[in-house]
């Protein structure tokens, strides 16, 4: 559904050093002319890709998933020789964008970049118009963004152990904020309550921004969100950081312990991202996409930016379609009982 965009094409042809503004404009004009000359022809696997590829991100532009997608898309464009254009199709907790890709033509020109929500939506949405496990072909996993548990500045506990006993003691007096039903912070909160076997009062917000605002302002007590959203606040001392939810510590926050280290069991969660094509996409096309993805995951620029986000690309063996498929199935199974126990559905 995408038309070659001259400016985006220009952005990709510029690989290495930063050119001057005027030179960019000249290149841009040339690229615009070149884009006009690209003929329209039906797609075949041998010549794939011969026109721009749309990468649907089922969330608003500017969010952490969008950032991951754009970094990957920029690198994949170089490998594929065609622009990978990010299109944000937000809404309904990511299911609108995913549904659009599920119904798209399986020609490899429409792909999806989704996060952990792809697995949880299978349970959260009882009336999903597509099947998460059968309506997509997995291309590969991209990255695991760790989550951090943070509290307001003057919350009494300072360590994970103290936090655990504080939550168990105060139960529903502790106010946990999240970014809305189905968001990563909502999932993390459910898992935390399930791991501690202690309820808290959950207050949903429309997105991380307002929730973070209320946490920094001391209106709510606790939150758990992707390190992308929390690192800046943690480093500035505006919030109290307790720990990370991954098995290993995070490079950008080396002093922050993991929950596993402190003896909290069954509380491991990362916002993993994966790429998908519609069911029926030919294996050759998937292989080309997977290859471009693997190259992107080794791109030094991608690695550097991922590090800024407090994450790193997945290892090459996890970036395969098979590993992705197995992981997705495991995640759907993992979250099903947790969501059903919490009794919260998104439709």
């Amino acid at each position: 559904m995408t038309h070659p965009n001259p400016r985006m094409a220009a952005a990709s042809t510029e690989a290495a050093p930063r050119p001057s503004a005027t030179r960019r404009m000249v290149v841009l004009a040339c690229a615009a002319l070149a884009a006009l000359a690209i003929p329209f022809s039906p797609a075949r696997a041998q010549t794939y890709p011969d026109r721009p590829i749309t990468m649907v991100v089922p969330f608003a532009a500017g969010g952490p998933t969008d950032t991951v997608a754009r970094l990957i898309a920029e690198s994949m464009s170089k490998t594929l020789g065609q622009q990978v254009v990010v299109e944000n199709v937000g809404g309904a907790g990511g299911t609108r964008g995913a549904g659009q890709v599920a119904k798209a033509a399986p020609d490899g020109y429409t792909i999806l970049l989704h996060h952990i929500g792809q697995a949880t939506s299978a349970t959260l949405y009882r009336k999903l118009p597509y099947n998460v496990l059968t309506d997509f072909v997995e291309i590969g996993l991209v990255t695991d963004v760790p989550m951090t548990v943070i509290g307001k500045k003057d919350l009494p506990p300072t360590t994970i152990t103290e936090l655990v006993s504080y939550v168990k003691e105060n139960k529903e007096k502790v106010i946990y904020g999240n970014a809305g039903v189905g968001s990563a912070s909502h999932l993390c909160g459910m898992l935390l309550m399930s791991a501690l076997a202690s309820p808290m009062t959950t207050v949903p917000y429309q997105g991380t921004g307002p929730a973070m605002n209320d946490l920094v302002g001391g209106q709510i007590d606790l939150m758990c969100d992707q390190s992308t959203n929390t690192t800046g606040q943690i480093k500035a001392g505006k919030v109290k950081a307790y720990g990370v939810t991954t098995p290993t510590r995070v490079k950008s926050l080396p002093d922050l312990p993991t929950f596993g280290e402190s003896g909290v069991k069954n509380f491991e969660v990362a916002v993993w991202h994966g790429a998908y094509a519609p069911k029926g996409t030919s294996p050759e096309v998937v292989a080309k996409l997977n290859n471009a993805l693997r190259v992107a995951l080794q791109d030094p620029k991608v690695i550097a930016r991922f590090a800024d986000l407090g994450t790193e690309p997945v290892s090459q063996d996890r970036a395969s379609p098979e590993a992705h498929k197995a992981f997705l199935e495991a995640e759907v199974a993992k979250w099903k009982p947790i969501i059903e126990q919490a009794g919260i559905y998104a439709d």
């Binding site: 965009n5 400016r7 329209f40």
Partner: peptide, 19 residues
Amino acid sequence: FIKALGLPLPMRGPWLGGY
């Protein structure tokens, strides 16, 4: 909309031979 702003929209749709 298409040239200057680059809306992700085709000028000709699939029914008219575009994509």
